[in-house]
Simulated assay, not measured.
Amino acid sequence: MTTPHIAAQPGAFAELCLFPGDPLRAKHIADTHLSDAVLISDTRNMLAFTGSYRGVPVSVMGSGMGMPSCMLYAQELFQHYGVQQLIRVGSCGSVAPHLTLGDIVVAQGACTDSAMNRHTFGDYDFAPIADYSLLSRFVNQCEANHQRIAVGNVFSTDSFYHPDKKLNQKAEAMGALALDMEAAALYAAAAVHKRQALAVMTVSDELQTGLGLSALERQTAFNDMTEMVLESTVIY
């Protein structure tokens, strides 16, 4: 059966699903990286596709922006469509001074200013973390490709235009690598449903310097990251 937000039929999703924020990036991933990809849902223009990579079924679906949208789609994919591995392939703004444009950040854990996880876990603090198996395989793949990578905490915020103008400095002081808007919710949804999740992100903006990737540079960087996600997940 379909859900309120996904029109796919039962069995339409593969167990492995990539999860970019932008639905048009989901289409780009399907067109660029998957074989024989077909559109399986376009409700509210949140595009979803299933194809294959090296003969292994793979799906890709947009998550939308922010934790509420990410949590909504993650829950429906886990609960109703049998997705076992959900991997965010997105962008982030770096706060760690050693990170530069195009570097890849792997969210080992995700701090947050959102109240969503407190609501989910009975007003207790919950430490949202990645699945270690997915994380270690991806890190190994990056190292084999000599790809610059950073593994550690990120800060998932509800606000793109945050009212705390010192948030970047506070996050850096606590050792966070970058800011994003989805990882903490994705990891919480995976914990609730006992599934595997990982968030990997290309640095598209340096929040301390104001530098950012161009549209063409973003596309190239995201393609490389996506290819390594697929190689690390499908081949192992």
Rank of each mutant, 00 (worst) to 15 (best):
A127T: 10
A127V: 00
P128H: 06
P128K: 02
P128I: 07
I129L: 13
I129D: 03
A130P: 08
A130K: 03
A130H: 00
A130W: 08
A130E: 04
D131T: 05
D131N: 15
Y132R: 10
S133P: 04
S133W: 14
S133K: 04
L134C: 14
L135E: 07
L135W: 07
S136A: 12
R137P: 05
R137H: 14
F138I: 07
F138T: 05
F138V: 03
V139K: 11
V139D: 07
N140H: 09
N140S: 13
N140P: 03
Q141C: 10
C142A: 14
C142H: 00
C142L: 10
E143T: 03
E143R: 15
E143Y: 12
E143K: 14
A144E: 13
A144K: 12
N145P: 02
H146M: 06
H146P: 04
H146W: 08
H146V: 01
H146C: 08
Q147A: 12
Q147T: 14
R148M: 10
R148W: 10
R148F: 00
R148L: 10
I149W: 02
A150L: 13
A150E: 07
V151P: 01
G152V: 05
G152R: 00
G152E: 02
N153E: 00
N153D: 11
V154G: 04
V154I: 15
V154K: 06
F155H: 04
F155M: 12
F155A: 02
F155C: 12
S156P: 06
S156D: 03
T157R: 05
D158T: 10
D158I: 11
S159F: 12
F160H: 10
Y161H: 02
Y161A: 02
Y161C: 06
Y161Q: 04
H162M: 09
H162L: 08
H162Q: 01
P163N: 02
P163G: 08
D164Y: 07
D164G: 00
K165R: 13
K165C: 07
K165V: 04
K166H: 10
K166L: 06
L167A: 09
L167M: 15
N168H: 12
N168K: 00
N168G: 06
N168S: 07
N168W: 02
N168V: 07
Q169D: 08
Q169Y: 09
K170A: 13
K170L: 02
K170S: 09
A171M: 05
A171I: 13
E172S: 14
A173V: 05
A173S: 13
A173T: 03
A173H: 10
M174G: 05
M174T: 15
G175M: 03
